[in-house]
Design a protein around this nucleic acid. Structure first.
Lengths: 229, 229
DNA sequence: GAGTGGTCTAGACCACGCC
DNA sequence: GCGTGGTCTAGACCACTCG
């Protein structure tokens, strides 16, 4: 029996899940646990730190660690590049640039991102195909005040997403998942029926507080985002 | 300048995002980095370990650390207890048990969970209200072969989710997010229109490989799951 | 003030995976 | 083999926060 931090973590987890350590109750201090298992405090620390990251316990200085009353369940989803996602599933990827317009940011976008009114933006609509079938609809806005070089890019060749992740750093990202109904335009482009439910990812990206880009990625009906742990 | 592991992590992250360290290129070994910053190797190790967890770099023994070619973007979402979620938003929570049936697992469920045909299951449908408005629709199946004590529980008093997380350990969870259209029953119960797009979480839970429960949580139309980093 | 977690250090041993 | 990351140790100092 090697008593690595994984074993310690597993034992603590078991004590909690089995109900031996009730929700809300205090967990012995790191020094005590270290002594009782005959390991260094750093080892116990790592086990407890990871359990805290996973939402199973809460830690505070002075008052110690406690079992969370309502364990926060978390799920981590990968949000891959569309092209990669499609190719990994063995489909042929094709990108179509549906529209491209330049102009001042519309009011809702300025409000959504806290952009100065009249900021020049680039609006792109793309379709990502998998084996000839529409897979994802990308509705993208790029802040030209921050990224004027986007004007010179041929987004029929490289997806906006791909171009951005390859060359633009960002500091803050805000992601929202929603279910939206396909409107007439969307339905025509995606080859689905008007009103069909589409799993949609909204993402706002900032760099040092300044908005970089805002995008809505609508997936074909029936799409599933999955994860396990 | 304190050169904690956070500073180190930030500096490495900057070197990568700024393009100084190109995707696919090797990162200096931990010992080198530790020497160049004048810190212990453990400090560099923690910085690199976290960057690897976040998907920005890849690490292998002997060959060292490299900048990932295609950085895997991940998003972590909290999946709270409904009651908690509703109460935290300042609404009054109310639970309604819509239906409760016991019987052998239907074919699709047995196939979905790899259950033996004929396994007894408990089927529950609940509605979770926030301030009198339907917030979430819960369609739950519980494996009675594993959890016979569920027969005696009054699920009009405690939500199945709440009861389960409080007393059942599990080892594997599989989560899928989808957008579904409300059927007539769902629309009536949720007070929305038939065909409305609903953000739905599907979750299958196992304990040592044996299926514990399967649930579909459909959120009211317009619901957003959000996160930031 | 005092207890607890947060972090760092210097050194050590090990396991994996190229060569 | 041997270099690299993975982990552990024993000790230390600090920061937060409760009483």
């Amino acid at each position: 029996m090697n008593t690595g931090f994984r074993d310690i973590k597993a034992q603590i987890q078991h004590s909690i899940l089995s109900g031996e350590w009730a929700p809300g109750s205090a967990i012995p201090a790191e020094t005590e646990l270290a002594a009782s298992w005959g390991v260094a405090r750093a080892t116990v620390n790592r086990a407890l730190r990871e359990l805290a990251e996973e939402g199973l316990i809460e830690r505070k200085r002075k008052s110690g660690s406690r079992v969370r009353l309502a364990p926060v369940r978390q799920a981590r989803f990968d949000i891959p590049l569309v092209r990669r996602e499609i190719e990994e599933r063995g489909f042929a990827y094709r990108l179509v640039l549906v529209s491209r317009h330049e102009g001042p940011a519309p009011e809702w976008l300025a409000a959504r991102l806290a952009l100065d009114p009249g900021t020049p933006v680039l609006h792109l609509v793309c379709l990502h195909y998998a084996d000839g079938a529409p897979w994802q609809h990308e509705d993208r806005w790029i802040n030209l005040a921050l990224l004027p070089e986007a004007r010179g890019v041929d987004f029929a060749q490289i997806g906006p997403n791909e171009w951005l992740v390859a060359r633009v750093p960002f500091t803050d990202v805000e992601i929202a998942l929603t279910a939206t109904a396909a409107d007439a335009d969307m339905a025509r482009q995606m080859g689905c029926a008007t009103g069909d439910p589409l799993l949609t990812i909204e993402r706002a990206t900032r760099w040092n507080g300044r908005p970089v880009t805002f995008v809505r990625l609508a997936h074909q009906r029936g799409h599933r985002m999955t994860t396990r742990y």
